[in-house]
Amino acid sequence: MSDSMNSVFDSANTFTIDGRRVPFKPGQTILHAALEAGVYIPHLCHHPELKPHGSCKLCTVTVNGRNGSACTARAMPGLEVENDTPALNDRRRVLLQMLFVEGNHFCPGCEKSGNCQLQALAYDLEMLAPHFRHAFPERPVDASHPDVWLDLNRCVMCELCVRASRDLDGKSVFMLAGRGAESKVVVNSPTGLLKDSALSIDDRAAHVCPVGAILPKRVGYAVPIGERQFDQATISHQVDYLARRTIPIKAVEPATETEGA
């Protein structure tokens, strides 16, 4: 692929999203091209540094009238994509509600609040309540690792940690096991505990979780509630961030004296 943007953004290589023309590079997915062009499509299991997965289904759009995941469907010249429509957003709200009731998502007690992508999507789509009957599943917390919490109550089974550990860290610490509603992330260690796994705080798998299931310890409130990623603007207004973010999703820096400077 050429370095020159002009040569790859051949005029033939465009498609439309809600009527807006979007250029793409051959091989890009619809979501990838959209984010680079500044067009927001809701998503949860996608990360620009990882291979497409297509499990959360929040990015479901219609492509030439047919439903498809924007994160796995390849961009093609002339495609007509519908994205920001009331019907599609209604479906996305239902998917979010499904995710909220199948786990134990208690935002007031979660240190990810404000940086959580599930919560941010819910805010943006104006999801006011989880709506369905809560499953209140029993999922133990694993606090055994010296530097990382594992709280599967908040897991949304996006497998970002599975992919990051396997494809970026080369460790395969996490794996989604089980079936159906009984699916759960398991840790590759003889005891099943994180402390006995190969996970290190420097691993990208320790920082990729879009929700509060995998969290680095001791930095939870270094950035106060109210000053976090999705507090300033809703996620749909942070397309540039979504397109260019790297893992960790947000670097946690110690508080400095330069505030207000």
Binding site: F100, F106, A129, P130, F136, P137
Partner: peptide, 18 residues
């Protein structure tokens, strides 16, 4: 009207649910 996290989702008291 369900007012607040507990009415909406059980909230802190519901942390005893398992």
């Amino acid at each position: 009207v369900a007012l607040g996290a507990c009415a909406v989702g059980g909230g802190l008291p519901a942390q005893r649910n398992n």
